[in-house]
Design a protein around this nucleic acid. Structure first.
Lengths: 130, 130
DNA sequence: CCTAGTGTTCTATTTAACTATTACACTATA
DNA sequence: TATAGTGTAATAGTTAAATAGAACACTAGG
């Protein structure tokens, strides 16, 4: 996996795992790969994986069982809540940034639509993500 | 100034200065505060400021003149270009994140509108930024 | 020419993230 | 009860960001 060197790896691992959970690649109650396996898959150290997982336990996203494994919470309401939080945090970030650049609400929405249109015109990028 | 400990300070300083330039607090051709003064204002080390500025020179956002000071580029087209790049980079980031969470284009725009509406309903936050 | 104000560079140190390695604790099962 | 698979923790070493402090290079003005 490729990491952004501007953000701590353990934090990017959290984000990665949240994506897997929230897109259904990892289902509610499902067992995650073993920490050592995750470390291999992500080409990082076990401790770095562990740090990410420890925070996710605190956030009630996963439940850890010593000797058994780490499991995605089976609480669907909790998952939905986490997803909402993630989406809102993302939106807040851009919104505040663009608002700080003196763009009005209307302009912000318009520029997002403009971005999406532009993006549609680039089959290369689009095909990767669709 | 308060920094996000997830992102290098020098990088946040760049972002900060770009905001000042692109919102007109620092006008085209205008002289920036001296590096030592900026370090005091931002409560960071001179070297950290310098690192941010060095990158901004590479990006043709500012022009440095030894013995005189650092100046915002007077090239308005260049500034407009930088602003567009900044806005698009921001939008790309959220879009890809949300799209990665399986939100459709329509849902992404809708959730942004929802965020803005929610935000309007919170006079505390709003008053700070308007 | 001197001095104050500026950008630039360098060395040394500290701190946090990350890595490598090992050990310990618990579970299931043969 | 032994063993393999799992999570957890601790130690030590590496690296990059940031700091502190000093020095160097250039400009403007008295």
């Amino acid at each position: 996996m490729k990491f952004d060197d501007k953000i701590p790896i353990y934090y990017q691992i959290k984000t990665h795992l949240y994506h897997e959970m929230l897109t259904g690649k990892l289902k509610p109650g499902e067992k995650l790969p073993a920490v050592r396996q995750l470390a291999v898959d992500l080409t990082v150290n076990v401790n770095t994986v562990q740090r990410a997982l420890t925070e996710m336990m605190t956030e009630k996203a996963i439940i850890s069982q010593r000797g058994k494994g780490n499991f995605v919470t089976a609480d669907q309401a909790q998952l939905a809540k986490l997803k909402e939080q993630l989406v809102m945090a993302q939106l807040a970030q851009v919104y505040e940034q663009l608002h700080g650049l003196n763009l009005t609400d209307t302009e912000i929405i318009a520029s997002l639509q403009r971005y999406i249109e532009k993006r549609e015109a680039q089959p290369d990028v689009k095909s990767i993500n669709d």
